[in-house]
Simulated scan of single mutants.
Amino acid sequence: MSAEAERDGLSLEALEWFVAMQDEATAAPRCRAFAAWIADPEHAAAYAKAEALWARFEMVRPEYERMRRAGRIGQGGGIGRREALLGGLAATVGLSLGWRWARQSDYSAGIGQGRSLVLADGSRVELGPDAGISVELTPEARRIRLDRGQAWFQVAPDAARPFVVEAGAGWVVALGTAFDVNLRAGQVVVTVTEHAVSVSAGEAAPVTLGQGWQMSYGARGLVPGRPVDTGAATGWRQGRLVFDEVPLREVLAELQRYRRGRILLLDDAVGALPVTAIFDASDADAALSHIARILPIRVREAAGLVVLVDRRAPEGAAG
């Protein structure tokens, strides 16, 4: 094989690894395989180039994630990861295939950045870092789709037009209200800061959730609500990340929104460890270091590109 062909092969391999690592549900064995792969300096350099290339077609990410959630990427009979990647590459140069797949959020915020806006109906929205929403306002209804991330809504009164937020596998209907919706890997968390909302998911009957309460839903349907400190639950609006007995895997998913480069959990078991802490949202790396001190985990940076999180070896043990 020629040197040029080897470089091309490595570039494609790096791109495929990068696409695979965008999946928050990537299993620990796959993550460990990636950690071993990127330890090679040549592989790390190729991965850095893949990351830079991906940034050029960031516009296709919401559609890529939608397709992945719908099971159309990486499954038998569906679109493969390589085809999805090539579709995104096509979008960067304006080819029809890429434009057909791309559906950008109407409003979005960058990694580590928030955004405030007022919709045409007068409703206020605050987007958390790396969040995106799509908006459809008609004479009959106001429909918002939370494509990714977290958002807080303060809804303008309009009895003739319901205000509905679709997120994940369910939706939230405002009942004259202010509320927060957080789309995490595998679940959606709804927190009501004013009045009430109606939450629906799956085949279950809608549930009315009042001020000061929080509930979640996911693949298994609705999880019963509980009272919460709404100031803590929406602390991200003031630059604070507050966690109270939150599983490590969910904490890492939150921190991912505040820093560039992927955070990979290499050990599924430690992902369930509870975290109770308050972090400065502007310093995700300091938060990671603190977690490594309070939990039996180690945090390592690979080639300045990826943060690897796994179980800390016992004192005196090798590795």
Rank of each mutant, 00 (worst) to 15 (best):
A28T: 03
R56K: 09
F57I: 01
R66W: 03
L53E: 03
A36G: 08
W37F: 05
C31T: 14
E58L: 11
D40F: 03
H43W: 07
Y47S: 01
A27C: 00
W37T: 07
R61W: 12
V60Q: 14
P62N: 13
A44D: 05
A39K: 05
E42K: 14
D40P: 08
Y47L: 02
A39Y: 13
Y47H: 01
A45P: 06
W37M: 10
P62W: 07
M59I: 12
W54M: 10
A28I: 02
Y47F: 15
A44P: 06
V60L: 11
A25N: 00
R30S: 10
A50M: 05
W37R: 04
R32W: 10
A27H: 06
A33M: 12
A55K: 07
A50H: 03
H43P: 13
V60G: 13
A55P: 14
R56M: 07
R66C: 02
E65D: 13
Y47G: 01
A27P: 11
A52W: 04
H43A: 03
H43V: 08
I38C: 03
T26A: 03
A48H: 00
R56S: 12
A25T: 07
P62C: 13
E24W: 11
A44H: 02
R66I: 05
T26R: 00
A50S: 05
E24F: 08
A25Q: 00
R30F: 00
A39Q: 10
A48D: 03
W54I: 07
H43N: 05
R32C: 09
K49C: 05
A39L: 09
A46G: 08
C31D: 09
A36E: 15
A44I: 14
R66T: 07
R66V: 00
V60S: 13
L53P: 00
H43Q: 06
R30V: 12
A33D: 15
K49N: 13
E51A: 14
W37L: 10
Y64M: 14
E24S: 15
P29Q: 03
P29M: 02
R30Q: 15
A52C: 08
I38S: 01
A46F: 05
C31S: 12
R56P: 08
E42L: 13
E51V: 06
P62H: 08
A44R: 01
I38H: 02
D40L: 04
P62L: 10
A28Y: 04
E51G: 08
E65I: 09
A27Q: 10
A27S: 04
H43F: 02
A52H: 09
A36I: 07
W54H: 13
A46K: 00
A25P: 02
A35Q: 06
R32H: 09
P41C: 12
A39I: 00
E51D: 14
A33Y: 03
P41K: 03
